[in-house]
Design a binder for these strands. Structure first.
Length: 495
RNA sequence: GCCCCCAUCGUCUAGCGGCCUAGGACAUCGCCCUCUCACGGCGAAGACAGGGGUUCAAAUCCCCUUGGGGGUACCA
């Protein structure tokens, strides 16, 4: 075990929202740093001028913050190794590019993207490796001038070795060997003056003193290129750990067509950050044969790279939903009310300004539905009948439970019993029901199910007494009257 | 095409040569609880991709095949 401070980083490119795969990578980096009392760095890799946007940066920052994946250095945090936006580090890259140029470890290349594309396709068509043909590798000064005069903007290419092998020592996969022959002279500085990923990542990871590069295994193939740059510059090579990919249900790379892939989308749909984190932690990592539920603290304590899997993992929405439900059930009533309130307001079910009585009622409803929702958003459809007067009736439910000959009379009796219930509490409501049940001499279910349909419009709801108490006496009595009329009409038509 | 990675129930995984007639979780199904649903409890079904080796012994080690994923950009 080395005594050097562990420093990890998450280095997203701001070309879109924070993807759950990215969040998982961030999480593992964060956990590794926290576990070792190290530093977690956030660096924005915005060298792609075409695709990088300000909104993406904001979205990524928001997503990480929501997940509680706090960074010690990076945007908004500062740090001794900044700037943390690659677009602000251009001078630094140029300096090292020049160093390579001076040492003849890199050279100017004047081939245009179009020319390269044609040559690549030709090579492929002839069954040859589509690597750069090095035609600019040994240009004379006058040749360069001629090309320059044609108006060509050069790129800088790394002069890569094509003999021997490059070894990647991966903490998760062990040693991986690449034939240097496979690597071509890749571009390190684009014609617009921006560095490419494979170059900038090396400079930054070195300068930011990153000790452990933990990233998706789609970067494995890039690693030998990066190692060659480390070596050309005389930088020590950090540790690498390549995480398995996250796939969709069809085993292809997780993308939008598999469903939600954005962290903020999960937030908006009503997932809890601790549930998403717990779920993501289990995608590629496991602690034991039996444990699946972990708090953040436990994750920090138990996380280790040697328990990271090598297999790609399919993102299982069902399991995430289950896990979210588990966390949801643990939420205190007060906090649950706070979480549910804005969603009800957004739907216009609860007014924008909430008085004490309304809040108490929402709390009562939220608690009643707590074991029945898997995401916060589900509160909306499952509680609608508490808030609106023109409830929707499920025809099948009406048919089955309301169109019974004893129902109209029973509803009248129940109506009068409930009218007497004061205060309108669960216990008093239960007394009324038991009295009615005795009077009509039927099973409790035969009393309750018709009432449930009359009151909620459906055959599914929390406990009847709980529902009526939260609904309130007035609405309950009104719906019983309406129900009795519906029952009468229905029975008349049927007979 | 070439290079690299990966391969245990439908899914996430435990397993790191004998403890495995392969364990857990989600999903599925059944039963219990019960005013419905949910929660909870109990139970069932369900996997070592195929073929060769190595070994007294292989899910575990090696090789091949097959399958999946990734890379091969002036994207990251």
């Amino acid at each position: 075990m080395s005594t050097t401070q562990v420093r990890t980083r998450f280095a997203p490119s701001p070309t879109g929202y924070l993807h759950v795969g990215g969040a998982r990578t961030a999480l593992f980096n964060w956990l590794y740093a926290r576990h070792h009392g190290g530093t977690f760095v956030l660096r924005i890799e915005d060298t792609d001028l075409e695709r990088s946007t300000e909104e993406s940066v904001t979205g990524i920052l928001d997503g990480l913050s929501w997940l509680q994946l706090t960074w010690d250095e990076g945007p908004g945090q500062g740090g001794d190794f900044g700037p943390y936006f690659q677009s602000e580090r251009l001078d630094i890259y140029r300096e090292y590019v020049q160093e390579l140029l001076d040492g003849d470890k890199a050279y100017l290349c004047y081939c245009t993207p179009e020319e390269l594309k044609v040559r690549r396709e030709e090579a492929l068509a002839q069954g040859q490796d589509p690597k750069y043909d090095r035609r600019c590798a040994n240009l004379s000064a006058s040749q360069r001038r001629a090309l320059q005069d044609e108006g060509r903007e050069p790129v800088v290419r790394f002069r890569s070795s094509d003999v021997g092998t490059t070894e990647v020592n991966d903490l998760i996969r062990g040693q991986i060997t690449f034939d240097n022959e496979m690597l071509d002279d890749f571009v390190i500085l684009k014609s617009d003056g921006m560095p490419t990923y494979n170059f900038a990542v090396v400079i930054d990871d070195h300068l930011m003193q990153i000790t452990h590069v933990i990233r998706g295994d789609d970067h494995i193939s890039n690693t030998p290129r990066q190692i060659q740059v480390y070596e050309a510059l005389g930088f020590p090579v950090p540790e690498f750990a390549h995480l398995p990919m996250i796939l969709g249900s069809d085993k292809t790379r997780l993308s939008k067509r598999h469903g939600a892939t954005s962290v903020t989308e999960y937030r908006d749909d009503g997932f809890l950050p601790e549930a998403l984190v717990n779920y993501l932690a289990l995608l590629g990592w496991s602690y034991s044969a039996t444990d699946t539920l972990f708090t953040m603290e436990e994750l920090i304590e138990k996380f280790s790279l040697d328990r990271v899997s090598r297999n790609p993992a399919v993102f299982d929405m069902k399991k995430l939903e289950w896990m979210n439900g588990v966390y949801l059930r643990e939420v205190e009533p007060g906090r649950l009310t706070d979480m549910v309130m804005p969603r009800l307001q957004k739907e216009g079910l609860v007014p924008k300004t909430v008085d004490g009585a309304t809040r108490a009622r929402v709390k009562q409803i939220a608690v009643a539905l707590q074991t029945r929702i898997r995401t916060l958003d589900e509160i909306v459809p499952s509680s609608r009948y508490f808030f609106v007067d023109d409830i929707e009736y499920d025809p099948a439910a009406v048919e089955k439970f309301l169109y019974r000959d004893y129902v109209p009379d029973m509803f009248h009796v129940l109506h009068d019993e409930l009218a007497k219930a004061e205060p309108f509490t669960e216990t008093n409501i239960e007394k009324a029901f038991l009295a009615v049940q005795a009077k009509v001499d039927r099973k409790l279910g035969d009393v309750i199910q018709p009432v449930r349909v009359a009151v909620t419009g459906t055959r599914v709801s929390p406990g009847m007494y709980e529902v009526l108490a939260a609904l309130g006496k007035d609405r309950t009595l009104t719906r019983l009257k309406t129900g009795a009329q519906m029952a009468k009409k229905g029975l008349a038509i049927h007979s």
